[in-house]
Amino acid sequence: MPLLHIDHLKTYYKTLRGDVKAVDGVTLDVEKGEALGLAGESGCGKTTLALSVIRLLPDNGRIVGGSVFFDSTDITKLDSETYRKEYRWKRMSMVFQGAMNALTPVYRVGDQIAEAILCHEEVEEDEARGRARELLGLVGVDPERASSYPHELSGGMRQRVMIAMALANNPEFIIADEPITALDVIVQAQVLHVINDLRRKLGLTMMLITHDLSVIAETCDGAAIMYAGKLVERGTVIDIFKRPLHPYTQGLVGSFPSIRGARKEMESIPGSPPNLLQPPPGCRFHPRCPHAMDICSREEPPLVEVEPGHLAACWLCEGG
């Protein structure tokens, strides 16, 4: 049984112009101990998927179908109080996108981490503060920095504080949403190093959300590609990078310039992602797909297991 099993999840946002189908029937498993990279372009629903799992959707967003099983419990059915007390931040937590702005500017960072501990455990304030300092040490920030305010820290340090905060209650599962976007290359490498290190030390299961495939190649075991609210491909990183099956994945992998090896022509995908208010019928990628066939504009391709552990949703793959 996988640690996280997302089953036909649908999350829509209510807007004045209709429902935005941000996540539309996604099925995805994350095995215990796995680091799964979830990639896709902006607006493809990857953050919405994460917010549905951690149940922090904005007011106009709601789960309209499907379920999310965490350790065999359907967490979408739990009442919010039980979920808050027993799951969120206790067993699973999240490192938010844009850590620069995710910290409160008016509290010391150590106190912000301690707050997460005090909310979930019956401990003395002093002990919580002490643990906050330990956590800072764990992510490579000088524990003395616990008494700094966020504006006194650099971007990379703030991001590390966010990671420390996510680790506050020893969760089994962490979602990291674009944890290194907006950081400089060298700082990115440092933060990725911290994440990799912690994963090994603490045996974490992780879901890393990013638009940058090379980050997934560097850190993850598995990869999942989303397009316009749908999961289009899932496999190991080797599957995805070496034998991509879905034309979108192929285009995405081909459009990444590499600093190593021979200079090769970059591929581009024509057109732009669809509007999720009225997604195209059939396969959502068909208007941009170089291999589109008749059936693609009529019927939606199912997600099929093409080889063990390697799934794709494309009519080309149907039947091998």
């Binding site: 290359v185 060298i186 990115q188 490498a189 990725l192 940058d212 495939l213 090379s214 980050v215 190649a217 560097e218 990183v237 080797i238 990078f241 070496k242 992998v253 990444f256 590499s258 600093i259 190593r260 090896g261």
Partner: peptide
């Protein structure tokens, strides 16, 4: 350092 920090989009690349 800058060069070493650039992520490589190839899971089999030596790091």
């Amino acid at each position: 350092a800058l060069m070493a920090a650039v992520p490589v989009p190839d899971p089999t690349a030596e790091r």
